[in-house]
Nucleic acid binder design. Structure first.
Lengths: 337, 337
DNA sequence: CACGTCTCTGAAAACGTTTACGGATGGAGG
DNA sequence: CCTCCATCCGTAAACGTTTTCAGAGACGTG
């Protein structure tokens, strides 16, 4: 027990060569007697193969990286919950990277691909910088990006038509007779922030509603920021009758603020979130939210990656997930359980 | 770009030996001119050291494992959120294992320690089998167990006095005048399930309340199971006036059921959870819950592990975290925001 | 009996690092 | 001019595997 047994220890004890030991351990055809001896010695010594040595030879680590901004956000969580079992079933381990949406941090992870401690990477960058693009191009292992990426970027890509998603909610709110539809967004320099901002304007236009910049407030994608932003918005536009939030977390913050302000949801203000996380059914009132298919996106990303690990060389593929509106009591009072 | 540059490539291009390259890259003293040449070639080639080779020599992987039942449970999530940045700051990566509370799966992870792909492991076993104990004893790398473990087990250990926690809530409910205090527990063959069961009985006895087995129902530690168990309990004991749930998730399920049954919380039934996760403040009404210091436990576990990685050889240590009751509207109506 | 064929095994190289050791060089001191 | 020491660097071994290649027997066939 003092020193870890290696293939060499076993070979000596069993009176065979290390090559034979390796063959037995890898299930290659071997004479029954040899196999028996090797196996028995290996078991007796409690032998476990050294993964570093194996990786060095085989050039595979059997690890996959997953990089997202913050493991605390239930969207990413939903993805991890899909991805982890799939990878595990395929014999891969999951290495988690929480980057705080910091570009330098993310580029560090990408550099990690070169260290070869992971065979592939699933990444959700909130901002895609030139640095990202360079690393994507130079990457020495497959990458799947969840979220939009410029045309022609040489990585597999899973995206969701968030524009359509925003349109769905805005139409829903409009259909309920709401005309002063506020919008609490996340940072505009993030990919989702920018997309949702454009989509909001576009949806209003389609419906013939005027775009009023006073109705828009920007915070960050967290509950506390959402609350603050919603409070600012409410103060500026007291006659708001609906609130679209770029995120379920933001929506939770908004609900807190509205409750404290004595506004009834949905009677006075209808509130909708995005992502349709578990939180939507926990919140009170239950939150109408656009599902952006987090679980589905996670699954698709894992599939794309595993596929490419199997046989590389194909052109990059893009999978697009359809958004789906899930209405609950925060917009449709009557549906309250 | 075709073939990954190695230390040998650099050596050739710079006209020095691989030893010199290694020295430069590791910051060992070298003549300025040599250093300049090596660095410039390395940069030009986009050299990145191969982690497998490095691990093989150095016998360290710079990875730490974290094994829990289900990444979806916010308790574990709170821990990961503490642990991940601490490990990262210390130069370690996090390898995530979701074991579905399956003993065989957990033992697999423990076996992984022998593969040396992780330098240490933080584990939260829901059940501690003989298999676990054997692996703990034979482990070739440091382990920190979060949760109780038999006296004398040779691992560092972070625990929480859940007995005291249960006592706190039961006293709180009793102090509010509740006398028919139901208990929805998780599986009794899990470490927390067993502990909470014993603690519930004990707390009742301390308060001079009779133990009525009709008041106890067992499900699993999830929302849906909690709902089902609470429904059974409610049907059996309609005059229940308080409900202690072994878990915030269970409590959410219970809230759903009570709402659907038309019981007011807390007027008719006071509800309390355990773990004090984020969900407690999202639920409606906000949930009274016993904090079992998830974040604190995560931090302590990471500290213990990093400490032991620094210098091994000390006796195993145990850190105990104090529970803390956080009262909210689900038991104290008047505090409703 | 010579030969070819087949099955099993061992020797050795290779993966990409780190590091112990000793050789070369140059300057200081006698 | 010789010796000594310090400084810098190259050679080679080692980490624990996998895999290629070829040798050794066994056996059947002509």
């Amino acid at each position: 027990m003092s020193d870890e047994p290696t293939i060499t220890t076993i070979a000596r004890r069993a009176g065979v060569s290390i090559a034979s030991v390796s063959r037995v351990l890898n299930g290659l055809p071997t004479r029954a007697e040899t196999e028996r001896r090797v196996m028995s010695v290996a078991r007796e010594l409690g032998y476990v193969p050294n993964s570093a040595a194996r990786s060095l030879k085989s050039r595979r680590s059997n690890q996959i990286g997953f990089a997202m901004a913050d493991i605390g956000n239930p969207v990413y969580l939903a993805m991890v919950r899909e991805i982890q079992p799939m990878l595990k079933a395929a014999g891969y381990r999951l290495v988690l990277h929480s980057t705080n949406a910091d570009a330098a941090d993310e580029i560090d992870v990408l550099r990690g691909l070169g260290e070869r401690y992971i065979d592939g990477l699933i990444m959700i960058p909130l901002r895609v910088t030139d640095g990202h693009l360079e690393m994507f191009a130079a990457a020495r292992a497959p990458i799947v990006v969840i979220g939009s990426v410029p045309e022609g970027t040489p990585v597999d890509n899973v995206r969701v038509d968030s524009r359509a998603g925003v349109r769905l909610v805005v139409q829903h709110l409009h259909g309920l007779g709401r005309r002063r539809i506020g919008f609490v967004n996340g940072p505009l320099d993030t990919v989702p922030g920018a997309a949702r901002s454009a989509a909001y304007a576009e949806a209003l236009e389609t419906l013939g509603l005027p775009y009023d910049r006073n109705l828009v407030e920007v915070g960050d994608f967290y509950r506390a920021d959402g609350a603050r932003a919603a409070a600012r918005l409410l103060e500026r536009v007291p006659d708001l009758d609906a609130l679209l939030c770029a995120n379920d977390l933001i929506a939770l913050g908004a609900l807190d603020v509205l409750r404290r302000a004595g506004r009834r949801v949905p009677e006075d203000v209808a509130v909708a979130g995005m992502d349709d996380t578990d939180l939507a059914t926990i919140a009170w009132p239950p939150l109408t939210s656009v599902s952006l298919g987090s679980a589905e996106r996670g699954r698709a990303a894992a599939e794309l990656l595993l596929d490419r690990l199997d046989r590389d060389g194909r052109a990059p593929r893009t999978v697009t997930v359809e958004p789906r509106l899930v209405t609950r009591a925060s917009t449709m009072g009557e549906e309250t359980p």
